[in-house]
Design a protein around this nucleic acid. Structure first.
Length: 427
RNA sequence: GGGGGGAUACCAGAGCGGUCAAAUGGGACGGACUGUAAAUCCGUUGCUUCGGCUACGAAGGUUCGAAUCCUUCUCCCCCCA
């Protein structure tokens, strides 16, 4: 199956420039996607773009991942209502390294002719002087053209205004495309649908400057059925970096996908064939409570991002925390096993002596540990019936716990709401 | 440069000098129902040693008493030049 068809049946395709499909069918093509170095890790939002590149490479084409070392210093106004903060050069360097190592896990950088390649636009912008830029690039694009872009129009008509720096952004990104086209024979730029305007500025620049042909393809922005933002939870962004989002949390994020979203996500975020997906869906429809789609989705992505071993651990933790296994189960484990089970679950250490005389729950959860930010909140939540210790709901804010409650003479499992677990270790 | 309007909790947005820790909506969090889903319904949404304490852009002032009145400052928006 060719690349465009692949994206199409997966529901990923948003917009494609005429002629793009033809050139892709003629043979190997180089194409790229840009990644923003605003953090030292990619998050699940970037994952859709990574998937596009993976499909691109699987279809026999050569993918380039462009890291925006230069553009990150400017800030893309697309979809932003306010001026963006600029990054310092140091953070930028640090972020570049992090992103680079993550991308290496997804793309094949050693597959002969269509090996993936990573480029950083800082390399060609760092010595590009302002005067040269406005002569060689600015001259070819009219301000009228630039102002017609939605990203610019929205800001000019809005009341926040827009700096010259951000206004220039599309030219800078446009030049990236030109540079890759010129030096790497890169004829296609891909990106999220919000990137259409920026990409087209690139093809326009290539046409006007060198009378060259270049193409554009954008993918659907990931949406949730309820209209809220994809990739965010109470705890913030879901990152690919295990340090920022534990594999357990990562797995849980995907497992908690709603039924409706799971059907589109499994097409977008996994490489499963059409038949497999359809049979999974049939299975899900027949027995929705089994959530086969969510499980398959969560498994596949977790393994791809964190590896098999981390997935196994995440499964074990999940089964224990959400399954029917009683808390007594912990008694059968040694310390290393307990800690392994709770890897990715926030943990706190308290003094064993503090429990000796019995410790009030509110003090335990708000003062001695940071399960709750304040005692008031702890009390309210306990009254609301949302808190449990060792899987038993706390009946009253006046309750106390002593060493008798410790599991294995050492552990307490606190629960805030149904899904938030905390391990308290008494030493 | 001139004139006008505004700043209230996560956001939006009410708020006769006392009865205001501050209406209402959204969000967020929690509960019930389920399937760790969606929808729905319910509750919570400043801190506390439960006596109080700190809060309505900032600093002063008037007053027994200020989110509310006065002064200065900071920032934002609108109109004119």
């Amino acid at each position: 199956m060719n690349f465009v068809e692949e994206l199409r049946w997966r529901g990923m395709l948003h917009d494609i420039m005429p002629g793009t499909e033809d050139i892709l069918n003629k043979g190997m093509v180089s194409g790229y996607i840009g990644f923003d170095p605003t953090a030292d890790s990619l998050h699940v939002g970037s994952l859709a773009q990574i998937m596009s590149l993976i499909h691109f490479q699987r279809a026999g084409h050569k993918p380039f991942a462009l890291i925006g070392g230069a553009t990150g210093m400017v800030g893309d106004p697309s979809g932003k209502s306010a001026e963006r903060n600029l990054l310092s050069e140091d953070t930028l360097q640090h972020n570049l390294q992090g992103i680079k190592s993550q991308l290496e896990r997804f793309l094949d950088f050693d597959s002969g002719a269509n090996s993936a390649q990573m480029v950083n636009n800082y390399d060609w912008f760092k010595d590009f002087t302002f005067l040269n830029f406005i002569r060689d690039v600015g001259k070819h694009i009219t301000v009228n053209y630039m102002m017609a872009k939605d990203s610019v129009k929205n800001r000019i008509n809005g009341d926040t205004g827009m700096s010259f720096t951000e206004f220039t952004y599309q030219l800078v990104q446009g030049y990236d495309f030109y540079y890759l086209w010129k030096n790497h024979n890169c004829v296609l730029q891909m990106g999220g649908s919000d990137q259409w305007g920026n990409i087209v500025t690139g093809t326009e620049l290539i046409r006007r400057k060198d009378a060259g042909e270049a193409y554009a393809l954008t993918t659907q922005l990931i949406k949730k059925a309820d209209g809220t933002k994809f990739g965010k939870t109470e705890g913030g962004n879901i990152w690919l970096d295990a340090e920022k989002t534990s594999p357990y949390k990562f797995y849980q994020f995907w497992l908690n996908t709603s039924d409706e979203d799971a059907k589109s996500y499994i097409r977008i975020f996994t490489l499963f064939e059409k038949e497999i997906i359809e049979s999974l869906e049939a299975e899900q429809d027949a027995a929705p409570h089994t959530r086969v789609l969510q499980k398959a989705l969560a498994k596949d992505i977790t393994i791809r991002v964190h590896g098999e071993a981390e997935y196994e651990k995440a499964i074990k933790s999940s089964e224990f925390l959400f399954g029917n296994i009683g808390i007594e189960f912990l008694n059968e484990l040694n310390d290393a096993e307990v800690l392994g089970l709770f890897e990715g679950v926030p943990n706190f250490t308290i003094k064993l002596s503090d429990l000796q005389a019995g410790l009030n729950v509110v003090d335990l959860l708000a003062s001695h540990t940071a399960v709750f930010p304040s005692k008031g909140e702890a009390k309210k939540m306990i009254q609301g019936g949302g808190t449990a210790i060792n899987k038993v709901k706390i009946a009253s804010a006046d309750d106390s716990y002593s060493v008798d409650a410790l599991i294995n003479g050492k552990y307490l499992v606190a629960q805030k709401g149904k899904k938030n677990y905390f391990l308290i270790i008494a030493e």
